[in-house]
């Protein structure tokens, strides 16, 4: 064939792409479940602060903030989840197009020189693949940006948890209970951070 072989591997998609999306989804699910736990923990902390009265006013304010944080986090994760479920369609499209292109290339190679229509078919296939790959790259970029934004939100959650620990020290007779709650907050937020780090390393496409 005189026509150059199209670059079907501009993005190296192999068998693990859907598995990677599943991993991303699982990580998101884990964070959503954790965010729900923070929400409940914050509610409990608000009640505890009310019981502690004036001694835990600051802790009460922080518990409210942590609850709002948990709600924001849930919203962020919902939008991340929407993105990954959309990416299943895009990845499948690319994998399918690559398979079609591979088999068609094999057929054209077997057919020898000068099969009428071969050049056009290759050009069409390469254009369709490039379009699908570009859509997938766009999704990947949006996903990364969304993960970064969520990481910043979680940083704020970390600050709130640390402040809650400080406020717990002024909780008088409730100090030990408030300290336990704020330590739980810090641990859960650290867990979310770890999950987001994993998520930040995942790529829908390999460059």
């Amino acid at each position: 064939m005189n026509a150059p072989e199209p670059n079907f591997h501009g993005i190296a998609l192999r068998t693990g792409e859907l598995a990677r999306i599943v991993r991303v989804n699982e990580e998101i699910k884990a964070i959503v479940a954790t965010a729900f736990r923070i929400n409940l923990m914050a509610l409990n902390a608000i009640f505890l602060a009310k019981r502690a009265g004036n001694a835990a006013l600051g802790f009460g304010v922080l518990s409210n903030e942590l609850r709002r944080f948990a709600q924001d986090l849930t919203r962020h994760m919902a939008s991340l989840r929407e993105m990954t479920s959309g990416s299943v369609g895009s990845v499948t499209g690319v994998v399918q197009q690559q398979r079609i292109a591979r088999i068609l290339a094999e057929a054209l190679k077997l057919s020898g020189e000068g099969v009428p229509g071969a050049r056009e078919a290759r050009r069409r296939g390469a254009a369709r693949l490039a379009e699908q790959q570009s859509r997938l790259r766009g999704l990947d970029l949006r996903l990364r940006a969304a993960v970064e934004e969520t990481q910043q939100l979680v940083e704020l959650g970390g600050v709130l948890a640390r402040s809650a620990k400080i406020e717990a020290a002024y909780g008088g007779g409730f100090s030990a209970a408030l300290m336990q709650v704020s330590t739980d907050f810090a641990e859960v937020i650290a867990q979310i951070k770890r999950s987001l780090e994993v998520l930040g390393k995942e790529r829908l496409v390999k460059d």
Partner: peptide
């Protein structure tokens, strides 16, 4: 497909 396509062509 490759075998059929090339035979046809």
């Amino acid at each position: 497909f490759p075998a059929v396509f090339s035979a046809l062509s």
